[in-house]
């Protein structure tokens, strides 16, 4: 079995997909870093000071002003209100939610990329993992060995889990190394608030507590990893079901993007909670960022993601071990 997993990992490494993904990260992270630095600078310039308290206060006031707009949908208002409450809490407790430094950038980056950017990177390697063997014809060599089909598929799945882990961790490491050039490399011990809870539109701070940023990062990347594994698993199923690389990739891109769109466009439509790709923002539970869709809770999110993964795996394994290889 180890040999089989090694086979799959070797192919993945030699196919250069992983390097392409690292390349994408190396190009995009500096752009995001620069954009973030610009935003901070502009905000500081607007107000005339870089004191985070002033900036934060101004942000709160700006959001209060948005609330007065009658055109804003109710669910957005609730979202903004919770956001204001949380920021006021940071202010009251004298904790800077955006203390500059590469670790803070890592935190912001994973919180922003967990629902779209990271899943897309995972889709790049996962969506043709099985279908590429079909399109290159090598599936015929793979399945005429004295190895059961489920073992072949399992080795592919394990190597996919490893690759997903590698991508998530590389994102963390590269965003640290690259953003540190501008923001500096310190800030692992900065306190971060966690444990915000929401009840009936009000923010509960009963369980809010401080954790060091390094621990927060470990947890945030761990959660984004769970989300990425679900995306990987569903892509894996698609790559078993669909023979062409292009359509597999297309299906997964459409699914991930529409999950994000649904979250923005119709947060009041309760049924979208059960679509796995609207549940990817697991890090929001950690940061206490208000969740737009009504009725979302951590057990529900984990449950939906888990259920999708299990069902996808069952479909993948049953199909793969039964299906005739016709072309």
């Amino acid at each position: 079995m180890i040999g089989l997993v090694y086979n799959e990992m070797l192919k993945m490494v030699r196919k250069k997909r992983l390097w392409v993904i690292l390349g994408i990260l190396v190009i995009l992270i500096p752009i995001f870093t620069y954009a973030q630095a610009q935003t901070l600078e502009r905000a500081a310039k607007q107000i005339g000071t870089s004191d985070w308290k002033v900036v934060l206060k101004q942000q709160i006031i700006d959001q209060q002003n948005r609330l007065t707009s009658s055109r804003l949908p109710e669910e957005w208002k609730a979202f903004i209100k919770l956001n204001i409450q949380q920021q006021e809490y940071y202010l009251k407790n004298d904790i800077n939610p955006t203390a500059p430094g590469a670790p803070t950038f890592m935190r912001k980056f994973v919180e922003e990329s967990v629902s779209l950017f990271l899943p897309l990177l995972v889709v790049i390697i996962a969506a043709d993992l099985v279908s590429s063997e079909h399109s290159s014809g090598t599936i015929k060599l793979l399945l005429t060995r004295p190895v059961r089909r489920w073992k072949v598929l399992l080795s592919k799945y394990i190597s996919l889990l490893f690759a997903t882990s590698f991508i998530v961790l590389s994102t963390a490491i590269l965003s640290y190394l690259l953003s540190g050039v501008i923001f500096g490399y310190g800030g692992w011990d900065l306190p971060v608030l966690s444990g915000f809870q929401e009840k009936n539109g009000a923010l509960l701070t009963e369980f809010v507590h401080l954790i060091p940023q390094w621990k927060y990062l470990l947890m945030a990347y761990g959660l984004s990893w769970l989300a990425c594994i679900t995306v990987a698993t569903v892509s894996f199923m698609v790559s078993v079901l669909v023979r062409s690389t292009a359509s597999g990739m297309g299906i997964m891109l459409a699914a991930v993007i529409s999950g994000n769109l649904l979250m923005q466009l119709s947060p009041t439509w309760g049924a979208i909670k059960y679509f796995a790709f609207t549940q990817l923002r697991l890090t929001d539970y950690l940061s206490g960022r208000p969740i737009l869709i009504e009725g979302m809770t951590l057990p529900l999110s984990i449950g939906v993601l888990g259920a999708w993964s299990v069902v996808a795996l069952i479909i993948a394994f049953v199909t793969f071990s039964r299906r005739d290889v016709l072309a």
Binding site: F207, H209, L223, L298
Partner: peptide, 20 residues
């Protein structure tokens, strides 16, 4: 990442009381 995700699930499912 496995350790990170387990830590976060423990953290989120069994909230500590505020140390603030």
């Amino acid at each position: 990442l496995l350790i990170g995700s387990i830590m976060s699930l423990i953290e989120l499912f069994r909230p500590q009381t505020s140390n603030l």
